[in-house]
Amino acid sequence: MSADVAVNDAPVQELVSRTPNQLAWERFKRNKAGLIAAVVTLLFIIAAFGAPIITGLWHLDPEKPYVDQLTPYGMPVGGSGISWAHPFGIEPQAGRDVFAMLLYGSRISFTLAIIAGVATIGLGLVIGTTVGYFGGWVDATIGRFSDFLLSFPQTFFIVALSLPLVQRVEATGIAHGNTARIVVLILFFSVFGWPAFARIIRSQVLSLRERDFVMAARSLGASTRRILFRELMPNLWSPTIVYLSLMLPSYLAAEAVFSYLGVGVQPPASTWGIVLSDSINYWQEDPAYLMIPALMLIVIVLALNVLGDAIRDALDPKADR
């Protein structure tokens, strides 16, 4: 009682109640590096998905060979061919505009990373929640299965199996060419990706399921499905969003690596990895052709990592890094 009186006597102060989300947003806004990273990421994504509009405004055609910009030896005029009309230069030999190539290529990389990320998260969320809630033999079986899955050398599997699997996908007629390759990569990334995330979710659910609100829901006669999807899952969104934001950069980098190794997306598509593996042939004559995609990839992966860290700090202020 006395506490109540004290509050009433104090000069009236505007008390604004804030939800945890608002608090997280305010913490996020204070993080300068995180904000910059968010802006950079947004710019990249807009540039990727707005590729047709941006190249159109710049009067560039991603498939047109700008032969007039090449020397008789097939190298860009003036070393890299960078000019106002071609801000990132000209591709050696084929003569395409590098700016347009990279924008269209990054659209493929982002699409792949986002779909694979969402699929990984989705699988991990559903499996982790189920396993954590039911426990017992379900938990043991799936736990062993994910151990088993993790003992496979992932890079080896992707390298070894992508070629025949792409043929399989093409044979079913679902997709062809690069679409089939993208489908296969998404499959691989999510199949090998979910166990790690499911483990995080499982441990969260283990403690959540003992909480009073779950018992309340159960005593009110809520179905298992309702408890899983309506009671438990809304409490899991903060690890989910953090994990997703850290998954995206690693999938972007992975796509680049497999394209570089020659088992991912193939030319004439022009993702960062493909352009990089082509640019090695001209690195001495045209270093810009190598540096531009390399820098783009480094910047976007760095920005996404910083953004992911910032989101984690905002959502989980206790985590002291």
């Binding site: 690596v257 990089l276 090695i280 390399a294 992966v301 760095l302």
Partner: peptide, 15 residues
């Protein structure tokens, strides 16, 4: 840590 985890090995290796 940030740079090291963000730099794909094939790029740092190539450079």
């Amino acid at each position: 840590v940030l740079v090291g985890t963000s730099l794909p090995t094939f790029i740092s290796g190539l450079m």
